[in-house]
Every structure is written in C-alpha cells, then in structure tokens.
Design a protein around this nucleic acid. Structure first.
Lengths: 339, 339
DNA sequence: CCGGGTTGGTTTAGCGATACACCAACCGCG
DNA sequence: CGCGGTTGGTGTATCGCTAAACCAACCCGG
C-alpha cells in the first residue's frame, strides 16, 4: 500500500539513491531527463516520504518541538497569549518544511528526553520560568526560549521589551496624576518577564516623583478569576490605591469585572492598565488601555532564529528584544478624590 | 553520546531483544531478575528510546496528529475554543504515552500525506467543515472529527448537542418575550454545527409561536470584529430586532461592544445570548448569558475514542454528542418597547 | 525415562531512508 | 594517445528498533 523509494526506483529503472537524490533536490548528481522521469513516477504513485525512516538515516529529523510548561494534573496551554505563540510558530515552521511536535512539559528532564527521543532539530520553549531554563544542559540542538531572560548560553531568548513596557505603564499612570499605585501579576521572582515589567514600572514611577512606598504589589496572580478576586477586595485591602498596572490583560480584564462586582467603576474610581493587547481587550467596558506586544514579530523572530541555526549552523546566539507600544483606550483617567 | 538498546544489552550481557522486551513491558519473556538488572542499567545510562526507529520497525508509531484547518496565508489556530481543544487533547494523549503532531492543513490531501508520512496511529480533526470531512478517503487509521456532523463512515464525530443548544437559546429569548430575533454566525451551509444550532433555534422559536418571518439571519461572521461591526449597524439594519442569538461567544462579545459603540445598551435595548461559555464571557459588561459546552468532556471523549480504536481495534464508530446547558448571566432581559 | 509444555531467552531479517565511497563514460587537450 | 576532470550515476553499510521464528533447558505426569 505504501509507496517507497524502491518502488519508484524499480519502475524508473534507476537506483534507490538516484530517486532519493531527486527527491531531495540534489540535482547536481542527476541529469535533467532522469529528474523529470522520476518526479513523474513519484507523483503518479503518490509517493510520500517516510519521516521516521528519514530521521533515522539522516542527521536531521525536520522535527522541531514546541514545549510548553504544564502542571502535573490538568493544566494545558490555556493562556491566549501562549496559544497565539504556538499557532504562529506552527505556521512558520510548516512553511519551511518542518514538523511541529507539541508537548507539555511537567519536569525539565522531559525536555532532554524529547530532544533525544525524537532526534529533534531544535526546540522552542514557550514561557518557561527562567529558573527552569537556567537548569537546561542540552547542547546538541538549538533552543529558543520565548519570553525568557535566562542567561543560559544554551538558549536564545526572544522577548518583548518588558522593561520599557513597564515603564510606559508607570509613566502613563503617573502622567494621569496617580500617586498610589498597585502592581499586580505573577510572582516576580519566578519570571524574568514580570521582574522586568516591575522594574520598568517602578523606575517610571520613581522618575515621576512617586515615592517607592506608594507602590503596592500583589503577586502570584495569573488567571481571569485571580484578577476578579483582587478587584473585589481592592477597596478594602488597598483603600489608597487609585490605579493598577496588571501585567497581563487577562488579569486586567478580571480585575475590571471584580471592581464592578464591588460597585466600583473604571476609570472613575480606579484606573487600570494591562499588558499584551489581547483581542478581547478592545471589547471590555471600558475598553482596556494596555501595552501591546508585537506577537507576530515575536513568533517570526523565534522561528527565524531556530531555522537559521539549524540550516546555517551556529548563529551568534544573541537574544532579541521586540518593541512595545502603549494602546490608549478607555481604562485610564485622572484619579477622583477618594475618601 | 546517545544510549541505544545495544549499549544496555552489552553491559547487561543479554541480547538486544531482551532489553527491548524489558523496555516494552513484555515481562512474560523475561525473568524478574533480568528485568530488574536491565532496568537499572537503562536508568543509570539514561536510556531514551528513539521514536523514529521504533515507528520504523514497529507497526505503531505512537504519534497522533492534531489537524487544524488553516487558510493558505496567515491563519493559525486563533479561536479560543479550538485552542482549548488542542490543549486538552495533548494532555490526554501524553498521559497515555502518545505524541502529538500539530499540523495546520491547507488542503485535504495533506491529511493523507501526514497520515502516511508519519505512519500515524490516528488523527484528530479539529473543527473542519463537514464538506472536507466528507471527502476524506483514509481507512488505515482511526480518525476522530471534533465538531463534525459528516456521515463519512471513516470518521467518528464528537460534538456538542448543538441542536439542543440552539433550542435553549431560542426558548430563553422567546420566554423573555422577544418576538423579533436575529441569528448571527458563520455560514450555515458549511458547518453542520451552525446548521444544527440554527435548526434548534428556529424550532424553539416556532414552538413558542414566533412566526418564521420574524427570524433574521446574518451569516459568515466569525471574529470579534465581525461581531462588533454587526452590533454597530444593528439598529439601522434590523430596527425591529430585540434579541440576538450569536452562535459563538466571541461573536457575542464583539456584538455587545458594537452595540455599545452605537449607543445602545445590553440588555436594555437588545438582549444577547451566546454559545460556548468561554472564560471571557463572564467578564464582559454585562456578563454574557450563553450556552455552555462541556469542553473537558469533549476532549476526553475524543481522546478516549481514538485510544480505544488504536489499542482495542475497531470500536463501534458511533458518534458522540455531549450535553449543553444554559448559563444565565446578565445579557438577556425582556424587550423594551422600541420606537 | 520419554513426550509435551513452560520459561527465558537468542537469531535473523527487515522497516525506509541517507551517507559515503566508488565507478564508468565521456571530454578536452598537450 | 594518455591523463585528469567532469557528469551521472550505483552499491553497501548503517540508523535503532521490533516481529517472528527458533531454541535450549527444565519440569512434570504417566
């Protein structure tokens, strides 16, 4: 049933190697006439190369893994942001003739297992904590880490300019006149991304003359629901705060809902600024003012880097940082006087 | 560098086959003592089986593809719903020792290519149009089609009870007193899912005594933005309509934003009911009343079916339909008198 | 003490492709 | 005419693993 190189070779009266050469475009070794004949037969028979056989025999597998951290139990790739990344990567790599293995990683050891078990040509690590990236000891293939600030020389980081993003958020809120600010996000220590956003945010606030002790932090927040709960208890827990920088739009969206639950209004009582510029962020009430990442560029860069390294050997392994911009919508306003 | 069965065999002083048997749990052929010794050596050496070699030699590859339709140019897996499906499937299959190949499909021929090129053990087709499913001619592996109503006997459909979902939506709006309704969604003819929702909706309306000519349809709508644009022109285009059933929450969310853009209010001027119950649907203003699908069950069923067919041979190939329920939130109210 | 069934392995033969080395013509040319 | 260099191939040895068949002990009942 399945058509192999040998079938084509027999029919064309040439050797298997010649067919292989034709199929791989090594035209130097084969005459134009032969190429044409072999191609024709292959098409007619409906030849499809066997990926497993090719990986086994060749030095390259044409398989690149997209690795995503997951919890041991039920987690998957929930965040809309993660998703867009995976989708974009799949498309880029497919266009270049590579296949994408999608794999949730519970423990870092599984990364090495995947690399070796599949003879991967490379792997893209999506949104792993820096600490995990730090621990990686894999030299045999290129590794691109999206949203990583790890200094591990075995990986190349591709990320947005989170520091500047944080700065823009802080500056925007300060400029609107806010003096008591809340920074809400995942744990800063685990994630370089969040640490950068915090640092940029803090710097902007300080530069605007806001004393450091006017900055409050709420950490370990990652979901819509976390944001909502924060919003509900915001007035009680932080009565002075007049503006919140949420380091992810899902958090910000949840937050706005929570504030509404508690009878507050945005931006009347509280200003909110997010980060990511998800699709949905333009559809809330009010629409969310946020820091936009250039997602398409991020996946394009990650794909380009890994393909370059695979096909042209060692690149310079220099991290890439992409621009951000403030998207002004309706969730930031000057502070009301609060009791 | 890479540890093979032969390395272990040499060190243990047994044949390669014995090691292979140990690794695959064929304990019938090997003594407990040998098993233990081989296991120990394998662990110590850090053995990782080579997937390509195994697929090539064995009759099974342990690879299952998640196939997603994409446009030729830039599309990827954007819909939050699609995403949740892929993520869930990855987890289920991984837990059972399978690997997931993620692949965008531009043309149906690529499905057969993927199946044969990878010697896939099976494939899950995510949200393909029924017409494409109809055209599939692949018998060698189990194919599960998520959200399909195709009668193609080569595939097993797993879907939500879209008809009942549509009915619930129609009944809810009718019960609230609406008489002029708009049905908004993707093209009904391409998608069995949408066709079912429409049919259920229409039946409920008719059963509630709403004349068929009071039902208006807007088709070919799929994105947040499509929804928004509809919302913006709703009053002008359909001045009589007091309630909308949007067949996807992203549409409904966009719609509410569009209505607000045009100065309308939900549910004061217009009631809106969605379908899917996305995360975000609880965070809009007002929160969206919608028909919830049981997504976890959907991916669990799809995974279970394909694994059953792979491991226990031909199952009965009977489609599975999962329940829906109405989630009452704040976007439906009785109609206001409109001029 | 012999025939037949376990138990615990081993041997042989690929799966379908590629890498690498080798080779037969032919060609131009001093 | 003999030699080196292209052009257009071919043969063979793997890659790492598994299916299937085979085999040597041992065990046990009659």
């Amino acid at each position: 049933m399945t058509v192999t190189l040998r079938d084509i070779a027999d029919e064309a009266g040439v050797s298997v190697m010649t067919v292989s050469n034709v199929m791989n475009g090594k035209s130097a070794r084969v005459s134009a006439k032969t190429i044409e004949r072999v191609r024709g037969i292959a098409d007619r028979l409906g030849y499809v190369p066997n990926i497993a056989a090719r990986s086994l025999a060749a030095t390259r597998s044409h398989v690149i893994a997209a690795l995503v951290p997951v919890g041991p139990d039920d987690d998957l790739l929930v965040s809309p942001h993660t998703v867009a990344v995976i989708g974009g990567i799949e498309r880029h790599l497919r266009k270049h003739g590579y296949h994408v293995l999608l794999r949730g990683i519970e423990h870092e050891d599984e990364i090495a297992q995947a690399v070796r078990g599949w003879s991967l040509d490379g792997a893209i690590l999506v949104e792993f904590d820096d600490a995990k990236i730090d621990r990686i000891r894999i030299d045999e293939v290129p590794l691109v880490a999206i949203d990583s600030y790890s200094a591990n020389p075995r990986t190349v980081g591709v990320r947005t300019d989170d520091h500047r993003g944080g700065w823009l958020a802080g500056a925007r809120l300060a400029e609107a006149g806010h003096r008591r600010l809340l920074f809400a996000g995942p744990a800063r220590r685990a994630s370089g991304v969040v640490a950068q956003r915090w640092d940029g945010f803090r710097s902007a606030c300080v530069a605007a003359g806001i004393p450091a002790e006017h900055l409050v932090v709420e950490e370990a927040l990652t979901t819509f629901q976390d944001g909502r709960e924060l919003g509900q208890r915001l007035r009680d827990d932080h009565p002075d705060v007049t503006a919140v920088f949420a380091t992810a739009d899902i958090l910000a969206v949840g937050l706005m809902a929570g504030i509404a639950d508690a009878g507050g209004s945005v931006p009347g009582d509280l200003s909110v600024i997010g980060f990511d510029d998800l699709d949905v962020s333009g559809y809330t009430t009010p629409a969310l003012t946020t820091i936009a990442q250039d997602m398409p560029a991020k996946v394009a860069e990650a794909s380009r880097i890994i393909l370059d390294e695979i096909e042209r050997g060692e690149g310079p392994r220099v991290p890439v940082t992409l621009g951000v911009r403030l998207v002004e919508r309706g969730s930031v306003a000057p502070p009301a006087s609060r009791r």
